[in-house]
Design a protein around this nucleic acid. Structure first.
Lengths: 351, 351
DNA sequence: CTGAAAGCGCTTACAG
DNA sequence: CTGAAAGCGCTTACAG
């Protein structure tokens, strides 16, 4: 005897999920087979006009919504893509997540956001969760996993990675030009007449941090300025480290008229440090950051910074995923770095 | 003829999903039936020691991970819960999302984050997406949907809502005490001797904004101070509106020695406005905010603010969901509002 | 162009 | 305590 609907109904009542409109019901209502309904929904085959109309009518009337769960099991595609971010509560990644959401939604996909917390262990676990959920592809924002691991992952399913330069049949990557951004920030300060420009470095294990430092060094070199080691101070991308940087610099009696911080958070921390020491910005010391965080738009004074188009990055990554999912190679056109000039830097008055 | 594995293999190759270890394979390897494996995994029935051991061994060896997709279809539970946030890139909600992620992960659930963008339309669409995905429950952070809609939703599946005071068999709600927080912020300013305290209001359609205004008014009343309408200025929770508030106040020649902004973003905007007009903080004007955003920790000067434990809120909401999912009524114990005193307020010097 | 049937990987009454 | 079987809601060769 076939199991009666009542059996499942009883089980379901514990969870009391709403009564489901199934493909079978619309098939019946439209006078066709479930196969036909499925094909119409998926555009899988050409179907006669009137049948199509009948089916759409039935769908409308019954309020049918296909179950992604069942589609996932049967078709092998879940119409979801995983997105691993380093942090769910970072002022920087949030916009990228929104960008991904916007773009994915447009093609009928659902994003699964999960965080990697800037370490390989969590990241690997997140990828495992995503794969267990059978996502159709995975987007990784600034992954900490090795290139090898990413490449290997891409053999299993489509992958797009930001902050990397990597390519494989099913792997697309995009990387913001941190070097160029840093060059522009530094040159801006140089053009204002500053010669002793402090660089507050980011976490040394972040590639982007390294690139920004190279950019700083390069701009100096182009202007024929020898880098002064005493002006390059370590940081870790946090506000607190920016503040500490200033304390250290001042304690050592370092001379400088400008600061380029590898990110806005450190720039903001540095500004607070300067304020505590009674140093006026930009009158006595100019400050430029990197990222163009919201927090810098209304800081005192508003912070000049290299804009990172993080929402667009998310959108571009998602569109690349869409292409991969569609079986085509994505064309990736990244926005170029642009310095947003606000009020935290002024011409050098010293010397 | 039964469809051969090859058939599906061919279809799958388009997506090239990895070869799957199924429950059937571990059953075979352990010499038991799939039913038994399932029961062991779900703790659904008592099973003999040795069978259990054999099964766990096989799972280990084969690296079996149950498919949530199949479990969802068969069992009616997907082990995922939806979380609708107003914004994925808000400095405020991010921490709550992380709190939800932490807690859900601990009970083996996956969160599905989706944004509502502060409007009913998107929120409703998000809830629909979540339901189509067959999540086992939905957490809503400061939903814009009506109480009625929430109650109705809770008839379909477990719901927990923040920012509400609502109760139903399968609906839990938790609400931060905005009123009390505002009272404390205002009283702090009052204790510092300020008598003319500006209130920059939040978006009038936000309940929390209204409560904060009531708190401000209440504190004034308790101190026997008649509210001055000219000191209550409209805002919308954005930095820009805080800045505009100052411009308006100053243009009208309003007299005040302190400002209580209904959130930090407006407080920060107000501080910039003050700075532009050459007014020193806190020497000439004191400022207090609400939310205790990261951006205020390093503002100039660091902003005193009512702390909102947003990560904990997320965790509490998730734990409440876990209870609901387990069929028990959650006990909700919310942290009380606490003012974090930093450097943006000082004793009143006027008069 | 379209339907019947098998199968996706699980869970869960049912019957020992 | 445990297995065989049916079913969850779809998709997709297969065979008209």
């Amino acid at each position: 005897m076939p199991r009666l609907p009542a059996a499942r109904g009883a089980a379901a009542s514990a969870q009391a999920q709403p009564p489901l409109v199934t493909i079978e019901m619309v098939a019946q209502a439209a006078g066709v087979s479930p196969s036909t309904v499925s094909r119409i929904l998926n555009g899988t085959a050409v179907v006669s006009e009137d049948k199509a109309k009948a089916v759409h009518g039935a769908i409308e009337r019954l309020g049918y919504v296909p179950s992604p769960v069942a589609r996932g099991l049967a078709g092998g595609r879940t119409f979801s893509v995983g997105a691993v971010t380093q942090s769910l509560d970072s002022p920087f990644y949030g916009a990228a997540l929104r960008g991904i959401e916007i773009e994915l939604q447009q093609i009928g996909y659902t994003p699964l956001f999960i965080s990697g917390q800037w370490n390989e262990i969590d990241e690997r676990r997140s990828v495992a969760v995503l794969r267990a959920r059978r996502v159709d592809g995975i987007i990784l924002l600034d992954a900490r996993l090795s290139d090898g691991e990413l490449l290997q992952l891409a053999e299993q399913l489509p992958v797009v990675a930001t902050g990397r330069t990597l390519s494989a049949p099913r792997l697309a990557s995009l990387r913001f030009d941190n070097f160029q951004g840093a060059v522009e920030a530094t040159q801006y300060l140089l053009r204002l007449g500053h010669r002793r420009v402090v660089f507050i470095a980011g976490a040394p294990d972040h590639q982007d941090a390294q690139e920004r430092q190279r950019g700083y060094l390069h701009a100096l070199a182009v202007s024929g300025i020898a880098p002064d080691e005493k002006l390059i101070v370590a940081g870790d991308y946090s506000e607190a480290s920016g503040l500490r940087a200033i304390d250290g610099l001042l304690r050592r009696g370092a001379e400088f008229s400008a600061i380029f911080a590898a990110n806005d958070q450190m720039a903001l921390g540095a500004m607070l440090g300067l304020y505590r020491h009674g140093i006026a910005i930009p009158d006595q010391v100019s400050v430029v950051g990197f990222d163009d965080l919201q927090a810098g738009h209304f800081s005192i004074p508003p912070l000049s910074s290299v804009h990172q188009p993080s929402c667009e990055m998310g959108q571009i990554a998602a569109r690349a995923m869409a292409a991969l999912l569609g079986g085509t190679r994505p064309e990736l056109q990244l926005p170029v770095p642009r310095l947003i000039v606000r009020e935290s830097a002024a011409p050098c008055r010293r010397e």
